[in-house]
């Protein structure tokens, strides 16, 4: 097990490689006028990132290496997503999603 200075060194290096990608575009781009195509491209990035983060989790793609359409994560996502679109409430969606997931765990067990 690594501890002591080795672990501290690892933490510092991890801090550097996570901070720089967060810092560089912000400092570099915030001071200048971006071309229209780049602004339009960046406009699509949020929806693309969120969807790319979510779908593998919902389908369990990372763990199982095969897709399963009957996972509670995915089934619960449907009403939760509908609620989110209707209400646009972040806190409400989080609470409702938790309640649905808890319920699904009881019913599907």
């Amino acid at each position: 097990m690594r501890t002591g200075p080795n672990l501290l060194g690892l933490i510092v290096l991890m801090g550097v490689v996570t901070y720089l990608p967060r810092w560089f575009p912000l400092v570099f781009l915030s001071g200048r006028q971006l071309p229209l195509w780049l602004r339009e491209w960046l406009d699509f990035v949020p929806v693309a990132i969120l969807s790319a983060l979510l779908l593998p989790v919902l389908l369990g793609a990372g763990d199982l290496r095969h897709l399963n359409l009957l996972r509670p994560e995915l089934i619960v996502a449907v009403p939760t997503f509908v609620f989110a679109i209707k209400t646009r409430s972040l806190g409400g969606t989080v609470l409702l999603g938790m309640a649905f997931f808890w319920l699904a765990g009881r019913l599907l067990r």
């Binding site: 979510l54 989790v57 939760t80 997503f81 989110a84 646009r88 409430s89 969606t93 999603g97 938790m98």
Partner: peptide
């Protein structure tokens, strides 16, 4: 997960 779902919505 629910939070990401809403943020996507």
């Amino acid at each position: 997960v629910a939070m990401l779902l809403c943020l996507l919505a």
